[in-house]
C-alpha cells in the first residue's frame, strides 16, 4: 500500500470536524444525531489507519467495538427522539428549553 497513513488521519480529522459543525449548526435533533454518527465513523477510520500502520489488529477490534456501541446508541437515541416528539410535537432542539432559567 503506497498511500501515506497521514492522509487517512487528516481525512478522518476533516470528517470529524464536519460532524462537529453539524452538531453545532443544525437544529433538527435527527440531523444532530446523524452528525454524531459521522464523528464516530471518522474516528473509526483513524483507528483502522493506525492499526495498519502499527501492523496490529487491535485498532480494527476497537473499531468493531465502536460500531457495536454506535448501534446500541442509535437505538436508544432514536427512541428518545421519538418520545420527545410525542411529548412536544417537534424535534427542534431550540424548542426543548423546559430547563432554561
Amino acid at each position: 500500500m503506497r498511500t501515506p497513513i497521514a492522509y487517512f488521519v487528516v481525512l478522518s480529522g476533516v470528517l470529524f470536524t464536519l460532524g462537529t459543525l453539524g452538531v453545532l449548526l443544525r437544529k433538527n435533533a435527527l440531523l444532530i444525531f446523524m452528525s454524531v454518527e459521522l464523528q464516530l465513523n471518522a474516528v473509526n477510520l483513524a483507528l483502522v489507519a493506525f492499526s495498519r500502520m502499527h501492523l496490529a489488529l487491535d485498532g480494527q477490534v476497537l473499531a468493531f467495538f465502536s460500531m457495536v456501541v454506535a448501534a446500541a446508541e442509535v437505538v436508544v437515541g432514536l427512541a428518545i427522539i421519538v418520545a420527545v416528539y410525542r411529548r412536544r410535537g417537534t424535534v427542534d432542539v431550540d424548542e426543548a428549553r423546559g430547563l432554561a432559567g
Partner: peptide, 24 residues
Amino acid sequence: LGAGFVIEIVLAVRAGIGFATKAP
C-alpha cells in the same frame, strides 16, 4: 472553531507521524 481544529490536526499529524510515512 472547525477551521482551527482542522489546522491543529494537520499540524499534529505532521509533527507526529509525518506526511511521508507509508504503511509498512
